[in-house]
């Protein structure tokens, strides 16, 4: 059981201000996902929690103890790297057991623990192999096994699925979700640039942009009540439509946001009219790209669409799903 508390964390490399005054409270046993575009500082923040990077200012607490000056190995954390960072010259057994060996545990105990983890992750038959003889998914599991075997209170994941192909990624997503169920007391912090991973796995999501926390909340909170244009645009696929001008003015907003599934078609002319430029048919859904005076809008229709390219369309947002944003791009 360990909570993580960040208070006014700042981090600079020379003149580059990477993390700007980040405060965050991560509860014990929670699965937190840091998400944001590349360069937003999410990996740096994770590395600051791990101790691989030192923070420039602010307080970092793990399990109610200030750890600013504590080296990584003494923070009670485990980390799964994007590249897995398996030691290529050591067998799976040695890879998993390396941390225990460093703690000076007796050989028999190391063997017992490694074998238990191997069983849990279905790696028993691979323990004597070298990493290069494993598939991508198996390597991923070894990397997770290395974290589990130490009984760390906090697991840190740095984009662990980005090296896998699409099918394997879905499978590993489920395995990590299962891991979370099996280890309910372990706090997990997960970094990704993929909002789908964030939505499917997180208890809470932290959206970062340019070194600042934009919003913290459960996936559905972020989806339904994004507090800024940035979060609204980042969460959800396809992206939310942003409309300015007359339709927004009517609702006393600078910008209004409407998700593609939240449009209705009208027979008569509306504020938002345009021509159908292009259609993507996916089978389950169709995406209609409509060219309007306020810009290109995306509309989702279930199943097939009856509309033809070049046809004039009249769109009407569903009132209760319209998001209103003020001049500072924040929610009204």
């Amino acid at each position: 059981m360990a909570n993580i508390k960040l208070t006014n964390i700042n981090k600079s490399y020379g003149s580059h201000h990477i993390i700007k005054d980040v405060s965050l409270d991560i509860k014990s046993g929670e699965f937190i996902v840091f998400v944001g575009p590349s360069g937003c500082g999410k990996s740096t923040l994770l590395r600051s929690i791990s101790g691989l990077d030192q923070v420039s200012s602010g307080t970092m607490e793990i399990d109610n103890a200030v750890v600013n000056d504590v080296p990584p190995s003494k923070r009670g954390i485990a980390m799964v790297f994007q590249s897995y960072a398996l030691y290529p010259h050591m067998s799976v057994f040695e890879n998993i057991g390396f941390a225990l060996e460093n703690q000076g545990l007796p050989r028999a105990e190391i063997k017992k623990k490694v074998e238990a983890v191997g069983e849990m992750l279905q790696l028993t038959t691979y323990l004597t192999r070298l990493p290069k003889a494993l598939s991508g998914g198996q390597r991923q599991r070894v990397a997770i096994g290395r974290a589990i075997v130490r009984g760390a209170k906090v697991f840190l994941f740095d984009e662990p699925l980005s090296n896998l192909d699409a099918a394997l990624r879905v499978q590993m997503r489920m395995e990590i979700a299962k891991l979370k169920r099996d280890l309910p007391n372990t706090t997990m912090v997960y970094v990704t640039h993929d909002q789908v991973e964030a939505m499917t796995m997180a208890d809470r999501i932290v959206v970062l942009q340019a070194g600042r926390v934009m919003q913290v909340g459960t996936p559905m909170e972020l989806y339904e009540n994004p507090n800024s244009v940035f979060v609204a645009g980042f969460i959800g696929s396809p992206k939310m439509n942003f409309i300015t001008g007359k339709p927004a003015d009517k609702l006393k907003a600078k910008t209004i946001g409407v998700r593609p599934e939240h449009f209705e078609f009208s027979k008569t002319a509306t504020d938002i009219s345009g021509t159908l430029d292009y259609t993507e048919v996916l089978g389950s859904d169709s995406f209609l790209y409509v060219s309007t005076p306020t810009g290109m809008l995306t509309v989702r229709e279930p199943g097939r669409t009856q509309y033809k390219t070049g046809q004039k369309l009249h769109l009407k947002p569903i009132a209760e799903h319209v998001h209103r944003f003020g001049p500072d791009d924040n929610r009204l």
Partner: peptide, 21 residues
């Protein structure tokens, strides 16, 4: 790879051990 060295640091190996192993 930087990850390898950092991974070993998190695994609690000191520099002498990282160097050797």
């Amino acid at each position: 790879p930087k990850d390898l060295i950092e991974s070993a640091q998190i695994d609690g190996a000191n520099d002498f051990k990282i160097f050797r192993r």
